[in-house]
C-alpha cells in the first residue's frame, strides 16, 4: 500500500476505534489487524497513540477515546467521534466512480455492488435516473487476455499471438516470453521478450489476438523491468500543412513543432510508422498537405495514394 497521509490516517484510526467500540467486550487485536489490513505493531502503535490524545489537558472531556489494551485484546470507549466524519464531495465522487466503473445500471443488476451504488446514490440525494449521469469507461483488469497472460507469467510459459502493429498497419505472428502485464493511461500492455527478435518489447493487449500459451519455458523478467512507454528519440518526421479546423491533431498527438502560418498550421510530427500519417491525412481531409516527409514514411502523395486505395472498396 502506498504511503498514507495524515488525513487518511485520521480516517483509518477513527474507523478502527469505532469498529472496536461497537463490541462492548472489545475485540481480539488479530481480528482488527485483519479487518484493517495492518500488522500488529502498526495497529498497536495507532491505538497507543489514540489512548494518549488529550491526556495532558486539564479537561477530562478533552480525551476523546478510552483505549484499554490487554495482551491480545483491546477495548475502546468513545467519548467523542461516535459517528464517521461527513464524506467530502471528492470522497463521494471517488466511491461513486469506482462503483459505476464496474456496474451497468441500465441492466438493473441486483448484485451487491449495484445495490451499494443505488444506496450511495440515494444517500447523495441523487435521483435514481441520474446514476447514469456519471459514466466510467475503464478497463480495470485487462480482460481475458490479461488473465491468460498473468497465468502464463506465473507458470513461466512462452506465449504466441498475432499482433497488429498499428503504426505500420502490419500483422505478424509473435513468440513472446511474457514478463509483466500493466496499465497506462487506460490501456493495458504486455512487456516481454520478443523471442525471434531477441529484444524486449511492449505490446498493447487490444492488438493481440489468437493468443495461445505454449509448453515451452519462458525466460524470467530482468530485474528493474521498466514499464515506460517512451517512444524512441530517433523517429522519422513528417511536416504537415493543416487547415485551422484540424487543430485537434496538435491536441491528439505529440508534436515536434507547431507554427501558425496565416490561418493554417504547420505541424511537425515524429511518428512510429507510415500508417500513422495515413490516418491523420485521411481524417483531416484533402486540405491536409505534406510539406516534407522522411522517405522512410513515404512520398508527398501518401494521403492521396492511401485515399485511392481505400476508395477502390467503394467503387465495387
Amino acid at each position: 500500500m502506498s504511503r498514507i497521509t495524515v488525513g487518511t490516517r485520521i480516517q483509518r484510526l477513527l474507523a478502527i476505534l469505532q469498529w472496536i467500540a461497537a463490541e462492548p467486550d472489545g475485540v481480539e487485536i488479530s481480528a482488527a489487524c485483519e479487518r484493517f489490513a495492518m500488522t500488529r505493531s502498526e495497529l498497536l502503535g495507532e491505538l497507543t497513540m489514540a489512548s494518549m490524545i488529550g491526556d495532558g489537558s486539564a479537561n477530562f472531556d478533552d480525551m476523546p477515546f478510552l483505549v484499554i489494551i490487554e495482551d491480545s485484546h483491546v477495548e475502546v470507549s468513545l467519548l467523542s467521534f461516535r459517528q464517521p466524519l461527513r464524506m467530502t464531495r471528492g470522497e463521494q465522487l471517488a466511491l461513486f466512480v469506482a462503483a459505476r466503473a464496474l456496474t451497468d445500471p441500465e441492466i438493473g443488476g441486483e448484485d451487491p455492488l449495484s445495490r451499494a451504488l443505488s444506496k450511495l446514490a440515494a444517500h447523495l440525494g441523487l435521483d435514481p435516473s441520474l446514476v447514469l449521469a456519471v459514466d466510467v469507461d475503464v478497463d480495470h483488469d485487462g480482460g481475458p487476455r490479461a488473465a491468460t497472460l498473468d497465468q502464463a507469467i506465473t507458470d513461466r510459459r512462452r506465449v504466441a499471438f498475432t499482433y497488429w502493429t498499428y503504426s505500420r498497419d502490419a500483422v505478424s505472428e509473435r513468440l513472446v516470453d511474457p514478463w509483466l502485464v500493466f496499465s497506462r493511461h487506460d490501456q493495458w500492455y504486455l512487456s516481454g521478450l520478443d523471442v525471434d527478435q531477441g529484444q524486449s518489447r511492449v505490446f498493447r493487449l487490444d492488438r493481440i489476438h489468437d493468443l495461445t500459451v505454449s509448453d515451452e519455458t519462458a525466460s524470467v523478467a530482468p530485474p528493474g523491468l521498466s514499464t515506460s512507454l517512451d517512444f524512441p528519440t530517433d523517429l522519422p518526421v513528417v511536416e504537415l500543412d493543416l487547415p485551422a479546423s484540424a487543430s485537434w491533431v496538435i491536441e491528439a498527438y505529440p508534436t515536434v513543432a507547431v507554427e501558425q502560418v496565416g490561418d493554417r498550421l504547420r505541424v511537425k510530427l515524429a511518428v512510429t510508422g507510415p500508417s500513422f500519417v495515413e490516418r491523420v491525412l485521411l481524417r483531416v481531409g484533402p486540405e491536409a498537405v505534406i510539406t516534407s516527409i522522411d522517405p522512410e514514411l513515404g512520398d508527398l502523395d501518401l494521403g492521396a495514394v492511401t485515399a485511392q486505395r481505400i476508395a477502390a472498396r467503394y467503387r465495387r
Binding site: Q11, R12, L93, A98, L102, L113, V138
Partner: peptide, 25 residues
C-alpha cells in the same frame, strides 16, 4: 464497494478515505 474502490480510483487518496468513513479498510 471496497473491491471496486481497490481496482478503480483516483490518483489521490480519496477512495481510501471514503472506505474508512464507511468503517472498513
Amino acid at each position: 464497494l471496497s473491491m471496486a474502490a481497490a481496482v478503480v480510483g483516483f490518483t489521490g487518496d480519496s477512495s481510501r478515505r471514503a472506505m474508512f468513513k464507511l468503517g472498513v479498510s
